[in-house]
Design a protein around this nucleic acid. Structure first.
Lengths: 212, 212
DNA sequence: TTGCAGCCTGACCGTATGGTCAGCTTTCAG
DNA sequence: CTGAAAGCTGACCATACGGTCAGGCTGCAA
């Protein structure tokens, strides 16, 4: 064997196994939902015995919680695009790009997140009432300022945000439908680019965004 | 008792029980997903013994299939708004109104549909490859004609449709999130109206829709 | 009135699942 | 080198779930 099963450091093992479990769990939760997912399936996909999962994550709920929180982190990072912007064209463009990239690179995570919210956010309720609300209020304020400064038409900021979330998230959550309507093939690079451009163009034109 | 347990006609019984089961099932499937839903819960909610469910619907899968097909019917009906229209302003406005009404009146159904698609449409794959595809192709053709006739800017019809689906469906699927961000209260009549108006305005402006 | 087809259901069953645990191996600080 | 802590796992358990069925009940056509 070229690979002499080099021994692993403790923390290395821990990190790698947790990672493998989280990746597998994200996929299984996305495909089957919380109720339909089984620890056995996740274990198989992660290449570990089921009992080992319970060594790292005591219960299915705890594992699910970790998966959901991971997604929330990624989601929040993308949200920062808004801050650096000087006006709606920069800010909203960057945000759409970031969220579309998430839809493309983390479709499973997006689905888990969608599923969680659809089922009443049993795990994330706290985050939604604190972090998410604060983030949203902040962005609403930014948009309101843009409107005051005449950088865009007076559009309800909340409904605009919902539209941004919806339009971008759709490409992950309903990816299967889009793929089916695309002749059963995943969107190509070009099609993803077109999707992004379309959303940007329609929304930015739609809100009458003007250069700072 | 004022209610002398009037006897029921046979077909009446059948109709009412099936209806009760389908209503209960829609709610439970929406709240818990297919895997998380249990026949017992559905039975309790419908006020029937579990064994009775299996008399009307042999398996959980069959019951689920019925629920999903019901939604698909409603969805298709709304889709007709497009046809009578003379231009994008009429057509897209009417479609947004219809789909928003579905999101408001049938949030559970919308969630079940979303869940079905997210999990790869195990039940609806056939419909998606036939009915849905035909419907979509038809609407794409209509939009293309509107563009040719100069009634709107040249926007990719498919991505426009996805945006319409996303923006409207979002208010059902992510209703819990929207409610949380709305101070924990459901959207009021006025807020629903504002939501509709906002979507219409942004999209119609965004695609440069011009009166026929 | 009667027979029967459709309707109803308590009790039951096999299975799959989340979770436990005793006891093993491996790593590594001292 | 050594002991203990961390990592690992096959075998096991209790439960909950989807589904079955024998047998009772009821509306209704003849």
């Amino acid at each position: 064997m070229a690979e002499p099963t080099r021994p692993m450091r403790r923390h290395e093992i821990r990190r790698e196994n947790e990672k493998a479990i989280l990746v597998a769990a994200e996929k299984v939760f996305a495909e089957a939902g919380f109720g339909g997912a089984t620890m056995q399936l996740i274990a198989d996909l992660a290449g570990l015995p089921k009992a080992n999962l319970h060594y790292y994550f005591a219960t299915k709920e705890e594992l699910y919680r970790s998966v959901v929180q991971n997604i929330f982190e990624i989601w929040l990072q993308a949200a920062n695009c808004f801050d650096a912007a000087r006006g709606p064209i920069d800010g909203i463009s960057a945000y759409i790009d970031a969220k579309m990239e998430i839809s493309r690179r983390h479709p499973d995570g997006s689905k888990v997140w969608a599923s969680e919210v659809m089922h009443g956010a049993p795990v994330l309720q706290d985050y939604m009432e604190s972090t998410l609300r604060e983030w949203t209020d902040g962005r609403v304020e930014i948009i309101r300022r843009w409107i005051e400064e005449g950088k865009m038409d007076p559009v309800d900021p909340r409904h605009l945000l919902y539209m941004l979330w919806a339009a971008t998230q759709h490409y992950a959550d309903f990816g299967h439908q889009i793929e089916t309507l695309n002749g059963g093939k995943p969107l190509s690079d070009r099609q993803w680019r077109e999707a992004k451009e379309n959303i940007k163009r329609v929304i930015l034109t739609g809100i009458g965004a003007r250069p700072a």
